[in-house]
Design a binder for these strands. Structure first.
Lengths: 78, 78
DNA sequence: ATGTGACTTCCAGTCCGTA
DNA sequence: GTACGGACTGGAAGTCACA
């Protein structure tokens, strides 16, 4: 069980590697900064849905497969 | 074809009505402000993935069915 | 090729109202 | 019950320099 941004970042990283892309390359496709893409993959930031769609578009898939299931996510509520 | 926030808001609204919830009630379940929930449904704001998960949780479904498909969304790129 | 700190701008999200 | 407005705070977006 990890935080939502961490799981999301791990999924993005895995999908990126499947496409043999570098963080640089993916960031370019998304229209995002290289260093910001790194932070996303490390789960350091909580992205918006628009950013999610940009990434899904660049990865050539729907946003859904990028998202972890609810029960994989550490609940932020007590 | 509408903007992403508009489609997302319409989906949330439809799912909320299926559950016979008011904006008030859904906002409470999500831990969000009532007026902000209204803005979400009207597509006036671009929410984060964490908020998306809060809403999916409150609606009793996964985040995926709340999200529109890429090809339903007006591309923000030219 | 990626991690990180420092930074600015802008919007996610709250709280107060009115109709 | 819901739409809509103004004013506000924290944090997402976005960039750069350096390790």
């Amino acid at each position: 069980m990890h935080s939502l941004p961490q799981l999301l970042g791990a999924n993005i990283c895995a999908l990126r590697l499947q496409k043999n892309l570098l963080q640089d390359g993916l960031a370019l496709l998304c229209g995002l900064d290289r260093s910001y893409m790194g932070r996303i993959e490390r789960g350091e930031v909580n992205i918006t849905v628009e950013t999610l769609y940009q990434i899904a578009e660049a990865l050539g898939c729907e946003p859904a497969p990028v998202l972890p299931l609810k029960n994989e996510v550490i609940s932020s509520k007590s």
